[in-house]
Structure formats: C-alpha cells, structure tokens
Design a binder for these strands. Structure first.
Lengths: 226, 226
DNA sequence: AAGTTTTTTACGGATTTTATACGGATTTAT
DNA sequence: ATAAATCCGTATAAAATCCGTAAAAAACTT
C-alpha cells in the first residue's frame, strides 16, 4: 500500500542502536544504520531517508559538524539524541537546523511520536499521491480528475466512490464496504446507489462506457480500478 | 523589514504569561495572549498567528480539546507547555497535531530556539508571494490584486477569501474551512457569507462573472482557484 | 453625514442525490 | 446445459440540496 518510509540512524553505541532499530522496525519503517558521522553522511546519499536520527557524541566528528554538513544539501527532518542536557548546546543545534532534541533517558513511545511529527512536516512535500493509468489521472490531494489531460468535473459523491477505488489501487472493493463508507451503515445493501454512481463515473471517465477499461465490476463482489 | 511575526500565547497563569511575553517581545515578535482555551481559539481567528504556544492545564477546556479544535482548521505550528511529564500524555498530544512539547521547568533560550524551529517549518509555505494565472495577479505580501495589469480594489474580507484560495494553489478549499478561518467557528455553516463574497470577487476579477475561469466552485465541497 | 463595507434576508434556478422500475447479463442450482 | 435466481446497467423522474443573485439594513470609515 503506502510507500515505505526510510529512517537513517546514526549512533556509535551498538546497544542503543539495536534498541532503537527494533522499535523502528516494529513500526514498519525501513532502517539503515551508521556508526559514525562520516558513514552517516555517505549513507544518506544513496539511502534517501525521510528522517534522520543523530546521536551526539560520535567518535569522528562532533554532531554539530555532521548536522551542518547535512544541512548544506538536505532539509530532511533530523532528530538529535544526546545525554547532554546543556541548554546552550541544545539551542546551538536547533538553530543549526535540527528539528528536535531528545535528552536521554527517554522512552521509545516518545521517540516514535516525535518521529511522526517530523514525518508529518514533510508529508506534503512527498509525492502527491496521484494515480495514473492510461488516459486517467486522479489526484487525491487536489481532488482533481482528468482524462487525456482534460479535467473532468465530478460531483462529491462521484469523487468519493472513485477515490475509494483508487486508494485500493486495483484491489476489489466490496459493495458493502463502499456503501457503508460513503452512505453510512444503514445503506449497506442499497446497492442501487452504487450502480448509479458507477454509471455516472463511467460515462465521465471511460472512452466507451459500455466497455469499461478503468472501473471493472466483479460480479457478486464489488468493483475495482485498473 | 521582513513582516512581523505573530505569536499567540495561551496560558492561564499570569506570572508565566508575563515572563514568556517579555522574552518573546525582546525578540521582536508580536504577541497576543489569551487566558483560556476558548479565548485562544477566538483570538486566533483574527490574530492569524504564525505560531501558537499552548499551556496545558487551562481552566475551561483541557489542552487536548483546544489542540484538536485548532487542528480542524489550521496547521500553524503549536508548541505545548506543561508541568506534566507523563509520556502517554506527550504522545497523545504530539499525535493530535502538536509540533513540540516542553516540560517545565525549561529555559527561555530553549523555548525561543524551539519557536524558531517551528517558524522555520512554515517559512517556505509562506513563500508564495505572488500568484499569477492568466490575467490575474495576486500579491499576498503587498495585498494587491490586478487583472490585465490594472489594479483591482478589494475590500478586506474579499481579499481574505481570495488569499485563502490562492494559498492553497489550486486545491479545493472547503466552505467550512473558509468560514471558520475568516468568520470564526460559529460561522461554520453560514454559507451565505461565502456566496456573497465569491460573487463580489467574481464580478471584480472575472471577465465573464457568469462563466468563472479563476474561482471555480466545487458543488457540495467548496471553491478552488485556477 | 456621506460613502463603504459587512451582515442579513429572501428567492429561484441549477445541480446533485435519492427513488423507482425494467430488461439484459451473470451466476447458481438442478 | 438450462432454468431460476440474482445481480448489474440503464432510463427517468421526484426530492433535496446547493449556489448565484438581488436588495436593503446595519455597522463601520472618513
């Protein structure tokens, strides 16, 4: 379903590295780890992380230098971990481009929550989820649909139906699920609603509505998009 | 030179409020303060802060509710202050949309640094100073609008509506969000305000107001700019 | 006090959604 | 394989909602 999220962990202490790695993996993030600032900088280039966790007190460069190196070319969120509770250091690092600063000891839930905050900030910069298939283009964020580049006007409900199908990206979506999600629980077996909106959608987005190429019906089950 | 930065401070303890206010003012920020969540929500509408500082432990609503109210209509950075060091609370608030969470006691320099972090996140979003599309030109900074090079006089409210649409740059903006942002929460379903101002705008900026090319209505949802 | 801007109220047309009906297609059971 | 049963596509019309427009009262500006 949604694309993998990559996190780069830079920490020289094996014990901490492992704990954090386990926690991150349990959330489904893809992790790459580096044991030094140099290595971290190198790995970031190919790994293209969505977020970086940087532990201060690295052997080779001090964390401040590493951070400044990163900020020369990327604005990816960086969370600093440290035992150092000195306020001046905190301020220096935050002003150098760090997005957050966590002082040990801290709990894993807090780290994970702060990671989510960091990812949230960048989420709109991330690829706009736009579905494309042949002549059809559906932009879920902007609520826009086009066929052959021409914008197509959809009503609200039409868009609701279409976006449900698009989000499942080719998987069949059962009628009852669609009905429940869009019209509410009580409408679970009012399948005529769907029939009508599928019809509307097809006349709007299919070249030949009687031979649908995009919205395929799976008889007895539901619909899916191709 | 650069435009003023507005910060809204919501805190019921006068002593803390004053200390923070002094610190913020010394940095050149413009401050508005509220002593309760309700008042904070109300003030935010007209004050349009670039950042909000929210102290938990307010008398009327709990901070969590206030935060969620804000997140229904604005993505402005929110920093939480609290004496409560409970991790579960932290996680809950961060996940509800808070951008940072500071536990008292903390130093003013750290707060200021974290404010800078929050402002940094939004600065590129502000960076759409002038919008152009066909004959229409909207300069958000200078509050100027022109069609075919001729300046167009807009009233305050008209400009508010237009700038909201421009900032979303083509995305649909729902009626309820527009109403909440411009007229306040209570106006969420007073759609006639919008109808009227959209009408005004169209007669001012569209060549043929009955066939709008710039301000398009998405029936049942809201409006968007093209 | 005159002019501008915002709020309030009202109405009719346009769009969208819901409702109903029927015949063809597809699946299921014999 | 064929008939029955179910499911799906289509057409049409009624109902509900939404949107544009006008005009005037109230609130603000100057």
């Amino acid at each position: 379903m949604s694309q993998e999220i990559r996190i780069l962990l830079i920490d020289d202490e094996a014990a901490i590295r492992d704990i954090i790695k386990i926690n991150l993996k349990s959330q489904g993030y893809k992790i790459d780890a580096a044991v030094s600032g140099q290595m971290g900088l190198a790995k970031a280039v190919e790994f293209h992380p969505h977020l970086i966790i940087l532990d201060l007190g690295l052997p080779d460069m001090n964390g401040y230098e590493v951070l400044k190196e990163f900020r020369k070319w990327t604005s990816v969120p960086i969370i600093i971990l440290t035992v150092n509770d000195d306020e001046a250091t905190k301020v220096r690092l935050l002003d150098a481009g760090a997005d957050d600063y966590l002082t040990k000891p801290f709990g894993a839930p807090e780290l994970l929550a702060r990671i989510r905050v960091g990812l949230r900030h960048n989420e709109f910069k991330e690829a706009t989820p736009v579905f494309r298939s042949g002549d059809l283009e559906v932009d879920l964020n902007q609520k826009r649909v086009s066929v052959d580049g021409r914008p197509v006007r959809l009503t609200n409900t039409e868009f609701e139906v279409l976006s449900r199908l698009v989000r499942e990206n080719g998987k069949v979506v059962s009628q009852s699920v669609l009905l429940k999600q869009i019209w509410g629980h009580h409408a679970e077996d009012q399948s005529h609603y769907l029939r009508i909106y599928i019809k509307h959608l097809r006349t709007k987005i299919e070249k030949d509505p009687s031979k649908p190429k995009h919205i395929v019906t799976e008889s007895g089950v539901g619909y899916r998009i191709i």
